[in-house]
Lab assay of single mutants.
Amino acid sequence: ARCQGVVCAMKEAFGFIERGDVVKEIFFHYSEFKGDLETLQPGDDVEFTIKDRNGKEVATDVRLLPQGTVI
């Protein structure tokens, strides 16, 4: 199932997405972002798939959504 959220933090090689369905942040590695990383910034709406890696939830297949998609 695809989830939606808003990019809330960006570091050197990874970032965090504030999920739209639950009050929780989820980790994503930049290699999982399908698009131009140069244009990705905090506040952007994205959709993603949640996978379990070593007992921790991570966002994979992260894709940009049109602004205003995530309420």
Rank of each mutant, 00 (worst) to 15 (best):
Q4Y: 13
D52L: 12
N54I: 14
C8F: 06
Y30C: 05
D44P: 00
I26D: 01
V62C: 02
F27A: 12
P42Q: 14
G15H: 03
V70Q: 14
F16D: 02
V6L: 07
D45A: 12
D36A: 10
C8Y: 08
E38G: 12
T69I: 09
E18M: 15
K11G: 04
G5I: 01
N54P: 04
F27G: 07
A1G: 12
E47S: 13
Y30D: 02
Y30T: 06
T60P: 00
D45K: 13
F28I: 00
V70Y: 12
E25W: 07
D44R: 12
C8R: 15
L40W: 00
Y30H: 07
K51S: 11
V7M: 01
A1D: 15
T69Y: 03
Q41T: 09
A59D: 03
F28E: 02
V62K: 01
A1V: 14
D45H: 14
G5Y: 02
P42K: 08
G55D: 09
K34C: 09
D21C: 05
D45P: 14
E12D: 14
D45C: 13
E38H: 14
V22F: 11
E38A: 13
T49L: 10
D36W: 01
E32D: 05
A9Y: 04
V70H: 12
D61M: 03
K56A: 09
E32N: 05
D61R: 02
E57S: 10
G5C: 03
R63M: 09
D61W: 03
E32H: 04
I26Y: 11
D44Q: 13
V58M: 15
E18F: 06
L37Y: 11
T39R: 15
K34T: 10
Y30L: 08
G68Y: 11
F27Y: 10
G15S: 01
T69H: 03
E38L: 10
G43Q: 01
A13C: 09
T69P: 15
D61K: 01
G5V: 01
Q41M: 08
E47P: 00
F33H: 02
G15E: 00
G15C: 01
T49V: 11
R2L: 06
S31F: 05
E25L: 10
E47M: 08
G20T: 10
V70G: 15
T49Q: 08
G35I: 00
V70F: 08
G20E: 09
G15A: 06
C8H: 15
F27T: 13
I26F: 06
E32C: 03
G15F: 01
C3A: 14
I17G: 00
V46G: 01
Q4F: 09
L64Y: 15
K51L: 09
L64H: 10
K51V: 10
G68L: 07
S31T: 12
T39L: 08
G55L: 04
K11A: 03
G20Q: 14
A9N: 06
G68M: 05
F27N: 05
V23N: 14
E38S: 14
F28H: 00
I17Q: 00
A9W: 07
F33L: 03
C8Q: 15
A13Y: 11
H29W: 05
G43N: 05
G20W: 06
I50K: 07
V6H: 12
L37P: 10
T69S: 14
K34P: 02
D44Y: 07
V22I: 13
F28D: 02
V7G: 01
V46F: 01
P42D: 07
V22C: 11
E25G: 10
F48A: 03
D61V: 03
S31Y: 07
S31M: 06
K34H: 10
E25P: 11
V22G: 13
V23R: 11
V46R: 01
G20F: 07
L40D: 00
C3H: 15
D21I: 05
T69L: 05
G43R: 03
R53S: 11
F27E: 13
E47C: 06
R53K: 13
E57R: 08
Q41E: 15
L64W: 02
K51R: 11
L64A: 05
Q41C: 13
T69V: 10
L37D: 03
V70C: 14
V58T: 13
H29N: 10
I71V: 15
F28V: 02
R63A: 11
E25Y: 07
L40Y: 02
G35E: 03
D52M: 14
F16E: 01
Q41I: 07
L64E: 04
H29R: 06
D52E: 12
D36I: 06
R63F: 07
G35Q: 04
L40K: 05
F27I: 12
G35A: 01
G15Y: 01
D52A: 12
R2T: 14
R19E: 04
V58G: 03
P42M: 05
R63S: 10
E38T: 14
D52H: 08
L37T: 10
A1K: 15
A1L: 15
V70S: 13
K56L: 09
Q41F: 05
A9D: 06
E32P: 03
G35P: 01
F48G: 01
E47T: 11
L65E: 03
D36G: 06
F48L: 02
T49S: 09
F48N: 00
R63Q: 11
D36T: 11
C8T: 15
T60S: 07
G55W: 04
E47G: 08
V58N: 07
A13I: 08
M10G: 00
K51M: 06
G15L: 00
N54C: 15
E57W: 06
C3G: 15
V23W: 07
V62F: 01
K34M: 09
N54K: 03
V6S: 11
L64M: 15
G68F: 07
A59C: 02
V7W: 00
T39K: 15
E57I: 06
R53C: 11
G20I: 11
P42L: 13
C3I: 15
D45L: 10
Q4C: 08
K24E: 12
V58S: 08
V7F: 04
D61P: 00
L40S: 02
G43E: 00
D36C: 10
V7C: 01
T49P: 00
I50E: 04
V6Y: 08
A59W: 00
E32T: 02
E12V: 07
E32L: 01
P42Y: 11
Y30N: 04
V22W: 04
A1S: 14
A1M: 07
A9H: 07
Q4K: 03
G68S: 09
L65M: 10
F14G: 13
E57Q: 10
T69A: 11
Q4L: 07
Q41G: 06
D52W: 12
G15R: 00
D45T: 12
T60H: 05
K24H: 08
D52P: 09
V58P: 03
E12A: 14
F48H: 00
R19L: 07
T39S: 12
Q41W: 06
A59E: 01
Q4I: 14
K11R: 06
V22H: 13
A59V: 03
K56F: 07
L37I: 13
T49A: 10
E38I: 10
L65V: 15
T49M: 13
T69D: 14
F16Q: 05
R53V: 13
A9E: 04
V46S: 02
D45V: 10
K11M: 10
D44G: 05
